[in-house]
Design a protein around this nucleic acid. Structure first.
Lengths: 109, 109
DNA sequence: GAATAATATATAGGTAATCTTTATATCGCA
DNA sequence: TGCGATATAAAGATTACCTATATATTATTC
């Protein structure tokens, strides 16, 4: 059984959460995460784009190139991605509560 | 500016939190984390011991070998470690709230 | 008394994710 | 026309975690 790690999952969930709000391309997603977390989280583009490619390969988002001029790839969340966002957020919240309980010394029942 | 990552920091803070409760050796720390997070978090010992060594090198915990028989290294949290636990827990809680706000679509003010 | 399981620590080596850097290209503004 | 912002991609370095192994003691069970 692997140890619980959060970063990878968190990054993916943040991307899905932004797309749940509406379609966006990579650059917009990065800005949106920073803005909507009050600067608490951010993406280096060297991190973000591989994540988008991974999510697309696995069918959790769908990307489409936008026609003329500057190349932009607009991503949409899929049904599978939406389901994962829901489940992932629930699981993450459960873990956070357990973690904060430990850190605060008030481990809940 | 590096992207915000949580795992490394979380692992260290969990160790410090257990030691804030009282001195313990590595094996006890691993058990305690699992028990006090209801199984939500666990340590592989290949992960835990390097973390303990790092924390000791950096003065956030102090380790002492317990004399005869089975070798055991008992760790205590230092003043510096205690300060970091406090600050780290505050920071982490702030990040969690921001993250959950994003994931839930209810980004707070 | 011998075998086995649990306790206890350590480290080497592989994998995977992130970070840094670089490359490419368009658009708006001065 | 040059610069900064927008936009995507990928190569290479770093780092952390996971797996596996090694070693040794104590307790249990047969």
């Amino acid at each position: 059984m692997p140890q619980v790690t959060l970063s990878k999952r968190i990054n993916e969930l943040m991307v899905l959460a932004v797309l749940e709000h509406g379609p966006a391309h990579g650059y917009q997603i990065a800005l949106s995460v920073e803005e909507r977390t009050g600067g608490a989280f951010s993406f280096q583009h060297g991190t973000l784009y591989p994540i988008l490619h991974r999510l697309e390969d696995e069918g959790r988002v769908r990307g489409a190139w936008r026609g003329e001029g500057r190349r932009r790839k607009t991503y949409r969340i899929t049904t599978a991605g939406r389901a994962e966002l829901q489940a992932g957020a629930d699981e993450l919240e459960r873990q956070f509560r357990a973690l904060l309980g430990l850190l605060r010394g008030t481990h809940a029942a």
